[in-house]
Amino acid sequence: MWTFGGQGETGRMCALRGGVFMYIFICEDSLEGIFTGVYDACASRLGHRNIHLASGEPENYELFSEYIRVTPSAEKTQKVVSTLISRFGRQFYESICQAAMSGERRSRKKMDKADAIYETILLALACGDGQKVLLSLGEPCVYRVFELCRATNREACQHLQFLRFSELENGVLFATIHPKDHILPLLAEHFSDRLPAENFMIYDAPHRLAAVHKASGGYALADAGELDHDKIKRYSGDELEYRKLWLAFFDHIAIDSRRNPALQMQMIPKRYWADTPELSRF
């Protein structure tokens, strides 16, 4: 028995059994890409032990592997989604989604995201109880999903807190964010519930995506490649006034004799500062 591979022990190190190659399904790094990958992998009947998923092109190609490129398909995604929800419940499905939305950089040391999701789904299918599977953190794939999920959640939560809207000339509330993970839908969901009567737009700069909400309507995600960068700097008459009031409030609420920049930095990480009016000054 000998091993091959070299993409780290959790992901790729597998014994070559009786001359069987590994099949590696390369998916697009998106919910649709990964779910289609899961669907194709299951449908391929190549034997689960010989299959891995990768959320993106591998760094180097292995000799004893066959690479299969997955074309994202809405139909297949829908099938996977409905299976997950009907068999294991909404909560399981949401955890898987949150893991899939993670933007954590792929690394050799850690299990690939798509692979972890695939294996976790397989475990759930074998065991029949999704919630139970999510609790078996001893399984490397489940632990990986748990880790990714926790990170995405934290990222989403921090953006709910630190995102700031500015009122534009045309009355639209506009916010720019720089998230690591693909959390825009979670944010859009939250703010649609909170500000139903506002027209607002959240611009996810690194992913070049925008969530656009119409007053008393729903929201939609749109490609923001064409965003008019001048328009989003033309603020309404009141905007600067209220911003100044906010800054005054922010400065006066701190207690001087408790001043503690280290704690402040720990609580609101530097990478959020540029997008908040009160801290971008420093």
Partner: peptide, 26 residues
């Protein structure tokens, strides 16, 4: 939850929107 027309909703866990110079949550 929001009521689909008025501004506002509440989350049980609460949210901190920023942290002042003394490190306390605002």
């Amino acid at each position: 939850r929001g009521n689909k027309k008025d501004m506002g909703n509440c989350l049980a866990a609460g949210l901190c929107h920023t942290f002042a110079a003394d490190g306390r949550c605002v």
